[in-house]
Amino acid sequence: MRVVSVVSTKDGVGKTTVAANLGGLLADSGLRVLLLDLDSQPTLSSYYALSRKADAGAYEFLALNLITPAQIVSKTVITGLDLILSNDDQGRLSTLLLHAPDGRLRLCNLLDNFRPRYELLLIDTQGVRSVLLEMAILASDLALSPIPPEMLAARELQRGTLTLMSELEPFRHLGIPPPPLRLLLNQVNSIQVDTRMIIHGLRETFAGTTNISVLDTVVPDRVAYLTAATLCLPVHRIETCRSRERRSPSALETMQALAIELFPEWREAISTVNRYTEAQ
């Protein structure tokens, strides 16, 4: 099972949108995907309609070590896409894990119970530094950080997310190295000159870095993503073809490109989503 955390120490960068749509595309590819919502503002938990809601969720999973899937895993209406709901609206988990001996490693220690059931675990995290965010990163094979091409977002990336990743390096001595970090340019309006300058600067900054890189895929600022969220559907089902007015790829093409770039081993399955959408 691959484990990917969608992370940023800045709120509003599109973490939930990326996690929901990436999970939806990969489920439509025939993969078994589990979403874990660790944000106390549970947007991911309400993105998709549920066909079955579990009695418990992320709080019982992490606070009580409850690992029985039938008790904590809800099923969405998207075939193959399951969800562990966020149910910690009072933020008790952060306090509990902060004082627990295994706090930052608890998720890592619990994941073996899910590996036979899923090909991918996608974790949506809080937009602030916390023990929950650190725990999610340390349990992951890969950290994916959406970043809008804005100066404030670029500064927060350096001050927040990159500093956090470097401060997790000591866990390497425990045999738990921090995962590679992939930066995803998100909500991009390519017409603006300052946008192009920031994108160019980010790519130059990390060009020679091994553990941090900027993905080639760029997610445009497109109304289709808002429409998809309103309809509780993955965006690749909403916008399957590029319009004549725009030269940029459709949402289907964008999400496929992102999924293939992150998971080249699943390229063949991801490419079949074309046939899925044509059949809708």
Rank of each mutant, 00 (worst) to 15 (best):
D194P: 04
V193E: 05
L110Y: 00
V188Q: 14
E156K: 14
E150L: 13
N113R: 13
L93H: 05
L142K: 04
M197Q: 12
V131P: 04
R172G: 13
P149T: 14
T195C: 15
S166C: 05
Q90W: 10
H99Q: 12
S145F: 01
R172W: 03
A143T: 15
G127A: 00
P178K: 07
D82T: 07
G91V: 15
L97S: 13
D141H: 08
L85K: 12
I176L: 12
A154E: 07
T205L: 06
M165E: 03
P178C: 03
D112M: 08
E204N: 04
I137W: 08
P116D: 10
R117D: 14
L138I: 04
A136H: 11
R182P: 05
T163C: 06
T95F: 15
R196G: 11
T205V: 01
L83Y: 08
R159K: 10
S94A: 15
L83W: 07
G91T: 08
L181C: 07
V131F: 00
C108T: 08
H200Y: 07
M165C: 00
E167A: 06
R117Q: 15
I191M: 04
N189E: 02
G91L: 15
I137M: 15
T161C: 04
F171P: 13
E119L: 00
L181Q: 01
E156D: 13
Q126W: 05
L120S: 03
R106N: 15
I191R: 15
I147M: 14
S190P: 06
L162S: 03
R106I: 14
P149W: 12
L202E: 06
T125V: 09
A143Q: 09
A143V: 09
E204V: 05
P177A: 14
L138Q: 03
S140A: 11
S94W: 10
D194F: 01
P101K: 10
D112F: 08
L202V: 05
M197P: 02
T163Y: 11
D82S: 13
D141L: 06
L97T: 09
L157H: 06
D102V: 13
Q126I: 12
G201I: 00
Q187N: 12
G103T: 10
T205C: 03
